[in-house]
């Protein structure tokens, strides 16, 4: 009975946290835009969240593209259809790997940093201080960070795709000697703008929304001690990774599952 009660309390706690995160999201989404003060803050956050994530995204994209090229070649060469490597690399990247891997890396690189930064602001009473000055921290601190993450992730995913395809071509064409013309032609022929590119982009938009939401909420809602901040940072990475992988399955089923 006691365990049942504990289970119930745990579930209620989770539900309450979910409710609080909804309230925060609501405030961020409905806040009246104030371009004059918000734009510089947003640009600054886009720099921190997006531009500083570029290196890890580009390097990962390049290597994953190269690995795909190599694996694809070793499989397809047995069937004599190695010129399909381009198609395989591009489709796996655009549909799956770019949005998913970018979102996972983004959660680790930018999401955790957002949580830690906001949590530390809470612990050092900077958020309270803003409130007492008459500035809503949800608008001033949370909103620009949320929007920056939301805008940046799709762009990063697109960059990931482009760099990955380049990596695939590097291995497939330049190293393994697939005929360049058929490599690119196959790719262009098989990748559909609406079915593949837009669907992949849509995934990235959803992931950007969810990962950044989790990150800013965990920071804002953390227990304001060093221990609390470290727990919140861990939760950000774990929860966003799980959310991304689960959502990816759901979205893939919805987009490509109509057999």
């Amino acid at each position: 009975m006691n365990q049942l009660a504990q289970l119930g309390r745990g579930a209620l706690g989770k539900l309450a946290a979910f409710g609080r995160s909804g309230i925060i999201l609501g405030h961020v989404l409905v806040a009246k835009p104030q371009p004059r003060t918000m734009l510089p803050l947003l640009l600054q956050q886009i720099y921190f969240v997006g531009v500083l994530s570029l290196i890890i995204i580009v390097v990962s994209g390049l290597f994953i593209g190269m690995v795909l090229g190599l694996q694809g070649y070793t499989i397809l060469v047995d069937y004599g259809s190695e010129q399909a490597v381009g198609q395989m690399v591009a489709l796996s990247l655009v549909r799956e790997l770019a949005p998913v891997v970018t979102a996972l890396l983004f959660a680790g690189r930018a999401g955790s940093a957002l949580t830690a930064e906001i949590g530390l602001m809470k612990a050092t009473e900077q958020l309270s201080s803003l409130e007492m000055i008459g500035v809503d921290p949800l608008r001033r601190i949370i909103a620009p960070r949320f929007w920056a993450g939301f805008y940046c992730l799709p762009v990063l995913a697109a960059i990931f795709s482009v760099v990955g395809v380049y990596g695939g071509a590097l291995v497939g064409v330049d190293w393994l000697g697939i005929y360049e013309g058929s490599f690119w032609a196959n790719m262009q022929h098989s990748v559909d703008f609406f079915d593949d590119v837009l669907n992949g982009l849509f995934k990235a938009v959803v992931f950007g929304f969810v990962v950044t939401w989790i990150a800013v909420f965990q920071g804002y809602d953390c227990i304001p001690t060093s221990e609390g901040i470290s727990q919140a940072t861990t939760r950000t990475v774990v929860l966003s990774s799980l959310a991304v992988l689960a959502l990816d399955f759901v979205l893939t089923a919805l987009m490509f599952g109509d057999f």
Binding site: Q126, S129, M132
Partner: peptide, 23 residues
């Protein structure tokens, strides 16, 4: 309400225990 609260806070200054400067 939230808005009235932020308005009335303009008439208050608070010195926090830790200072709470924006880092």
């Amino acid at each position: 309400g939230r808005r009235e609260l932020f308005e009335i806070r303009e008439r208050m200054g608070m010195l926090f225990q830790s200072g709470a400067l924006f880092t």
